[in-house]
Amino acid sequence: MSDEKMKITLHVWRQKGPSAPGELKTYKVDNVNPHMSFLEMLDVLNEELLQKNEDPIAFDHDCREGICGMCSMVVNGRPHGPRKATTTCQLHMRSFKSGDEIYIEPWRAKAFPIIKDLMVDRSAFDRIIASGGYVAVHTGGAPDANALPIGKKDADEAFDYAACIGCGACVAACPNASAMLFVGAKVAHLGKLPQGEVERRSRVLNMVHTMDTEGFGACTNHGECSASCPKEIPLEAIMTLNRDYARASFSGDE
């Protein structure tokens, strides 16, 4: 491990508010330790901006261990940066080298309006879930957990889809800002389990309707979403979504 300090030039998207114009501003950060996480490097920059009485860079982050899904920035043209299956908060500066220029931008999508700088409003995802991304069971009165056996393979596959952290990298990566992978992951997760079967048709119809209303683009089957997903949700999710949607549309009853 090298402990040499790195010098990094950052070009960061700065935008005061949702309708204000934005621009890339350049900052030089010296003394970057390669063991720093990417967000810690931004912390250091914000500390420097504070000393200069400049507005800090606003960005979303919380758990900093890759699971809450809050961090959201496009680093050098890729959501969450260059490392596969890694959120920005788990990205470390050793993935870069001294003298590098790094471009940082927010997720860009009509459905994710910019709040400030790198922060975007992802409540569209919540509204999609609210429209059907659940099993409508009341608390209490559930049958014994082992009353309904579920094959290990199905349970494991359901987990693969359920691992989605709702960060929105799929939308940011998609050339059309489509949310198909996010919606597909939930539809496929619940579709793999018998518990999700009852509402299978209404769920997919309602979720896709909300997805369309929120202004996400359509899928053109490029696969960028899955390639950028920090949890590596498989493209198979979109296949399930397409199949379920067609089947639900063509079958009359619910």
């Binding site: 559930a142 049958p143 957990a145 094959g151 359920a162």
Partner: peptide, 15 residues
Amino acid sequence: IDQCVAQGVPFAREY
């Protein structure tokens, strides 16, 4: 556990 399984929480399972 009953409640969470009914919600579709994908707990680990045996074969």
